[in-house]
Amino acid sequence: MALLSCRNLSMAYEGHTVISGLSFSVEKGDYLCIVGENGSGKSTLVKSLLGLKKPAAGEIVFGNGLSANGIGYLPQQTDIQKDFPASVREVVLSGCLNKLRGRFFFSKKEKARAEETMSLLGIADIRRDCYRNLSGGQQQRVLLARALCATESLLLLDEPVSGLDPLVTKEMYGMIQRINKSGITVIMVSHDIPSAVEYANRILHLHGQSFFFGRTEEYIKSDLGSRFLSAERKERKNG
């Protein structure tokens, strides 16, 4: 059974239908990139997957014991966070929030999990540092660690590399790839189509009322994919 499947999904944003008839599924171990222009409905789709917004029609079905609350979500940064006084450890530990259920405080098990995740992402030695004093790349690592604490199976990353310089972007992509190889399914919303094609094995491209969903190889050959990729290449040459 698929980890997550959307059937005939329609979504509306402020009364306008942005997507209709969207169907796709994500298998365990997949690396899916969701691409598309601004306003194509990516954020609305993310909200629906997280269970924060009811789709106008259609359904989202989770398999393998996953639920919307068990998704490890990395949202886009907000203004509030940029100068928030929190230690790295406090932020990462807050990822275990969905494990509290009815309890009030974190147990040893959850604290150990936060420590483990910090070591995994190489931020264990800055665990006492203040989040607001970190570089953009370090901040994203911290948020990625928090997302990892929240899930056993599926990461949902909303533009995780926006605002990062090229070197740090590459590092971030490498880290996400390693996490994916270790068995965690990844869904990433991205603007960066060339990198999406490089790392993901599935692409969902939202384009107006139509969409493409399939393997990356198929996407490259598809009408939509070849058009966007060649446009990107031209731009890079000129730039």
Partner: peptide, 22 residues
């Protein structure tokens, strides 16, 4: 005191906290 962890999460990142079902 009881809701300390949740209050922290809501203050730091409302979207993430909503996504965890809070």
């Amino acid at each position: 005191v009881l809701f300390y962890n949740r209050i922290f999460a809501v203050t730091f990142d409302e979207n993430f906290t909503r996504a965890t079902g809070t």
